[in-house]
Simulated scan of single mutants.
Amino acid sequence: MGFLLGGWIHHAAGVACCTEGFIMSLGLGTYGAWLNPLHGDDARAAYAMEAETLGYETIWLGFGGRNIEDLKLVERILEATSTVTVATAIVNMWNNDASAIAESYRRIRVRHGDRVLLGVGVGHPESVKTYQKPYDKMVDYLGRLDAGGVPRGRRILAALGPRSLTLAGTQAAGSHPYMTVPDHTRMAREILGREAILAPEQMVVLEPDARAARAIARPFIQTPYLGLSNYVNNLKRHGYTDEDLAGGGSDRLVDDLSPHGTPDVVARKIKTHCDAGADHVGIQVLTAGTESPMPGYRALAATLFPSTTRR
């Protein structure tokens, strides 16, 4: 049982979540499964079906810089599931025409209603060569989605810095930041205000041995993310030093970006984003290579959704 204070629900366990109306309007639930493209689309379609039965209410589909203008994988997963929201994480603005994305969104919405959430963003500057500044690109792209009939309440912006977060709060439902820490979530909530959705991604490793967990997480974090200026600059904003960012990342950085441990320990780490102001957390279970993340999602589900009936 929780009590309402200043627009937030405070639970006896000390975990704060935004008032339910905000997140229910998007159908995200509190926790989602964030599925990396390295697993392949066929595998992710199967993972999504099981994640729904486990209790995860949103499936986040990572796409990197791929052209996905037909949104076929989104449609495939919507057809294979019955209740989950399927979110793109993200549609890369440089590589996907806004009008084509809007047309695909409208097609899918006719059949599946508001179960689709369009996550969009500029990715990172190292991936493109263009004359247009990233912020200007975001403004232009969101305007084209407006013209294409994509409601602001059904799209979410990958935003890290203060300026893009402000844009996310006014021209989209909110923000879906990637590779962040709870300090960033706290800052983002202050900028977004209470009405916008804040749904950070969180990497985790279901491994209690610190050395083994870091051996899984560090290569994933190092390449490419510690070579990308937007992520590096954002981490520096929140107190990480050049020493933390060098050589694949310090233990402190790796542990903060990808908490490890037993399911109970990892669940508590995930919930620190809720304490900091997140409405929803997209959980990305890291594994060695392309091993299935589903054992990790199953283990976490038993902690996060103890009353959910599972197969």
Rank of each mutant, 00 (worst) to 15 (best):
G14V: 03
V15C: 01
A16P: 06
A16D: 11
C17K: 02
C18I: 00
T19I: 03
F22D: 04
F22E: 09
S25F: 06
S25C: 03
S25D: 13
L26V: 01
L26K: 10
G27S: 11
G29P: 15
G29F: 07
T30E: 14
Y31S: 03
Y31M: 02
G32D: 07
G32V: 04
A33P: 07
W34D: 09
L35N: 07
L35I: 13
N36T: 08
N36D: 15
P37L: 01
P37M: 01
L38V: 01
G40M: 03
D41M: 05
D41R: 11
D42E: 11
D42A: 13
A43I: 02
R44L: 03
R44N: 09
A45C: 14
Y47T: 00
M49N: 06
M49F: 11
M49Q: 14
E50K: 07
E50N: 09
E50Y: 06
A51Q: 02
T53L: 12
L54D: 06
G55A: 05
Y56E: 03
Y56R: 04
T58F: 02
T58S: 15
T58V: 02
T58N: 13
I59H: 10
I59C: 04
I59P: 03
W60A: 05
L61Y: 14
G62W: 04
G64Q: 06
G65S: 12
G65Y: 07
G65Q: 12
I68R: 15
I68M: 12
I68G: 12
I68E: 10
E69F: 08
E69H: 13
E69I: 03
D70V: 00
K72W: 08
K72Y: 09
L73I: 08
V74N: 08
V74G: 11
R76M: 11
I77N: 04
L78N: 15
E79S: 10
A80M: 03
T81I: 10
T81F: 14
S82R: 11
S82A: 08
S82M: 00
V84E: 14
T85S: 15
V86D: 11
V86Q: 07
A87N: 13
T88H: 12
V91P: 08
V91L: 13
N92L: 02
N92P: 06
N92Y: 07
M93F: 08
W94F: 15
W94G: 13
